[in-house]
Design a binder for these strands. Sequence first.
DNA 1: CGCATGTTCAACCACATGGTTGACGATCCG
DNA 2: CGGATCGTCAACCATGTGGTTGAACATGCG
Lengths: 107, 107
Amino acid sequence: MKSDLDAIFSALADPTRRAILTMLLEDDMAVTDVAEPFDISLAAISKHLSILTRAGLISQEKRGRVKWCRLEPEAMREASVWMQGFGQFDPVDLDHFERFLERELGG
Amino acid sequence: MKSDLDAIFSALADPTRRAILTMLLEDDMAVTDVAEPFDISLAAISKHLSILTRAGLISQEKRGRVKWCRLEPEAMREASVWMQGFGQFDPVDLDHFERFLERELGG
DNA sequence: CGCATGTTCAACCACATGGTTGACGATCCG
DNA sequence: CGGATCGTCAACCATGTGGTTGAACATGCG
């Protein structure tokens, strides 16, 4: 039986999926719009989105023809809590975070 | 070029490897002792350990015949920071964490 | 209706992953 | 030296993953 953590960490292990999550930080998006910046097929994006959905990291709601994707950051809490148990990390350093964001988006 | 986050998250995606990390919270351990509670071959454990090492989550040092494994929790910081950017999670809830630990250790 | 748009499904391919076993290298000990 | 212990390596196997393409389904629009 697969733990939630399995699903969450393996969903996060792919750079395309992390980039998608980062895009969804800005706003909800339709599947086609999520796919736009990537160089892979819509079908591939659709698979990534269903992996993210299964992990609980996003939710998808169909309105008309369009399926909207919404970030569900709460799902990350479980994984975050697990990791926090391994060290007394400092409170979030936003500068640090922005550099990671840039690296994620830029690379 | 694989990001550190790729290596870290995919290392964390496996329950055997998470269990190993949890064991190493207690103390440094020899490879053979790490393997003892698991039902898989020593060679398989050795592979898991080298994946954790490549991700920077543990370090290994050979003293005599014995190779000691040490937790390197700092490596989790990068991933932790990345995740924290997705939500203003509450400060670590230790009760919550203990329940996860039990679930991890208990099977 | 009939067509374009949005999204998924199915079949397929290449490659990575987690496991096995057996041989091997290295180190300690009698 | 010779044997036991510690650990990795190599070859192999089954399964999973990320990608492709082409067909299909669902919905909105003229």
